[in-house]
Every structure is written in structure tokens, then in C-alpha cells.
């Protein structure tokens, strides 16, 4: 019980710290949202009007507490740039980012898992070595370049793909896939390398344990040993790592949405940072970080349910 209580308290502390960091960073940020929005054509009257309208002339602590209060009631304030509630904007963009991220995660799972098992079974044979070098290469390529290459050589040549924009699932499933597959692949490729390695190591660790030796000595076929016994136990650390890569996949979407012009949260974040649209940036950053923290928390809890020894650590 104490374990869960402690985890929950830690969760809240982390979220509180995240909110302070987020808010603080944007207070020291040079650059004026109003001027950025109105450009060189603005006159001073318009600038001052807008500033007081948005409450940007109030003291800092007051702005912080208004913001925090809003967080609890689900009101993230209004975007300066778009004059609309931040939550509306978030909700509009969320499906895009979630879709890309889920597909990317699926790709990572579908590729890294079998590859990892394969490599573990053929430990240190040529195919294992080649696989790990090739996947490393995927990790080393700057993702926006990879995305551009995909657009150039696949997106523009294969009719199925649409190289930018987003078609909602509700409109056409095929359409949605045609806009989402390439970006998801771009995000997934560097992740495959890390997770593949992790799967491989986890399985190899299991192999060295006594129970495997026992089973093997009973003369069970190798396939059954691997799939039935080793894999099930290796699942625990694998589960954790898939929890952890959510943060990386979310980060991946930020760059990749730019490349593929997907109207998701990442794209919104980039424009709102350069617009100095503080309420919007804070809202997005809070949303992303809280999501990441919560997923990690969930994975932690699941992990401990699966393996009670964890709680003692």
C-alpha cells in the first residue's frame, strides 16, 4: 500500500514541478506575443489595447495562480494568437497526433519484437550482427531528413500516399492511413533500433536463468522454450520500455509533423513557441508532460502488479 501511496505522491510532485518549470521558462522568454502577432504594421494603440484585454499586464504570481486554478477546472485559458480556448485547439489537434503516435507504436511493436526474438535466437551469428548494425543506422539518421527522403522517393511516387495534410478517420480510413503511414514510419524507425536491442537483451538475460536450463534439459523443442516460456517472462521489462518510449514517440511527432505538414499538437507547439503564445504553449507542454508522467506511472504500477518484488526496491 505504501508503495502505491508514495508513487501517487511522487506523481503529483512531478506534475507540480513541471507546471512551475513550464510557467517559469515562458516568463523569462524574450519576445512579445502581441508584437509578434501584429507584426510591423501595428500601431501602439492596438498593441496596448490587446495587452490589457489579454491580462498580460497583471503581476506574474497572479497570472500563475489564475493559470493553475484553470488547470484544475480544465480551463487552460485563451490562445493569444488564435483568440480561442486552448482546450478547443488541443482537442482539434489531438486526434492527429494520437493517430500518428499509435501507428508508430504499433510499427515499433510489430517490428522490434520479432526481430529481437530472431536476433536473440541467433545470438552473435552473422544475421544478428547485421541486424543490430542496420537498426543502429536507423537511429543515427536525423528524422527530418529521413522524412524528406520518404516524401521524395515514396510519397511522390506511390499513388497511395498523400504527402501532406490529414484526412480524419471518420471520413475515410484509407485516406487517414495514406496521410499517416509515412510519418509514423519516420517516427518508428529510430525507435525500432533501441527497442529491438532491448528485446534481444531481455530474452538473453532470461536464457541464462536456471529455469530455462531446466526446461531445456527436459528436452522441449527450442521453439516452445522461446515462445512459451522465455518470451512470457521477458515481457515484463519489454512492457516497461514500451511505456517509456511513448515520451520519445511524442517527441518524434513534433519534428515529423512539421515535415509532413500534419496539423497535430507538435505543429501547433512549434508555431505557438515562435508566436510567443504563452497560454497555448503552456497548455500543450503541460498536456504532453502530464500524459508522459501518467503513462510512466501506469507502467510502474502495472509492472509492480506483475512482479511484486518491484515494490520492495
Amino acid at each position: 500500500m505504501f508503495f502505491y501511496l508514495r508513487r501517487i505522491i511522487l506523481l503529483f510532485i512531478t506534475v507540480a514541478l513541471v507546471s512551475v518549470i513550464t510557467f517559469a521558462v515562458f516568463q523569462v522568454l524574450p519576445g512579445d506575443p502581441i508584437r509578434t502577432m501584429l507584426g510591423t504594421e501595428a500601431d501602439e494603440t492596438q498593441i496596448e489595447n490587446l495587452r490589457s484585454e489579454l491580462g498580460l499586464d497583471r503581476p506574474l504570481y497572479e497570472q500563475y495562480f489564475t493559470w493553475i486554478k484553470g488547470l484544475f477546472t480544465g480551463d487552460l485559458g485563451n490562445s493569444i494568437r488564435f483568440s480561442m480556448p486552448v482546450s478547443t485547439l488541443l482537442m482539434e489537434r489531438l486526434p492527429v497526433t494520437l493517430s500518428v503516435a499509435s501507428i508508430a507504436l504499433l510499427i515499433v511493436l510489430l517490428v522490434a519484437l520479432p526481430l529481437g526474438i530472431f536476433a536473440a535466437r541467433r545470438k552473435n551469428k552473422a544475421s544478428d550482427v547485421v541486424l543490430s548494425s542496420v537498426t543502429q543506422l536507423g537511429m543515427a539518421v536525423p528524422s527530418f531528413w529521413l522524412g524528406m527522403i520518404f516524401i521524395l522517393y515514396i510519397g511522390m511516387n506511390v499513388d497511395f500516399f498523400r504527402i501532406n495534410g490529414y484526412i480524419p478517420w471518420t471520413e475515410s480510413i484509407q485516406g487517414a492511413l495514406s496521410t499517416l503511414l509515412l510519418p509514423a514510419l519516420t517516427i518508428a524507425i529510430p525507435q525500432v533500433a533501441v527497442k529491438f536491442r532491448y528485446v534481444r537483451t531481455s530474452i538473453l538475460e532470461q536464457v541464462q536463468l536456471d529455469y530455462v536450463r531446466t526446461i531445456r534439459s527436459k528436452g522441449l523443442p527450442e521453439k516452445i522454450v522461446v515462445y512459451k516460456h522465455i518470451l512470457k517472462n521477458a515481457m515484463i521489462p519489454i512492457l516497461t520500455i514500451f511505456g517509456l518510449i511513448t515520451a520519445e514517440i511524442v517527441a518524434g511527432t513534433i519534428i515529423v509533423e512539421q515535415v509532413f505538414a500534419l496539423p497535430g499538437i507538435g505543429q501547433l507547439l512549434i508555431t505557438s513557441i515562435s508566436n510567443r503564445d504563452f497560454p497555448l504553449v503552456q497548455g500543450i507542454v503541460m498536456y504532453i508532460t502530464v500524459a508522459v508522467v501518467c503513462i510512466n506511472f501506469l507502467v510502474d504500477i502495472l509492472y509492480s502488479v506483475v512482479d511484486p518484488r518491484i515494490r520492495l526496491r
Partner: peptide, 29 residues
Amino acid sequence: CWLSFVLVCVLFLIGACSNSEGDNSSTAM
């Protein structure tokens, strides 16, 4: 262990689906 693995997958899918249903008109590119 299997259960929790499936749970995580389902969570992701639910996340993706429920949200894409909520959207229709506005992100119309």
C-alpha cells in the same frame, strides 16, 4: 503479464479511436 500488455495496447487504441471520433469537421484539410 499478458493481461497488462494487452491493457496497454487497448489503452492506446481507445485513445486513438475515441479522439478521432470526436473530431470531424474542423481539421478538414
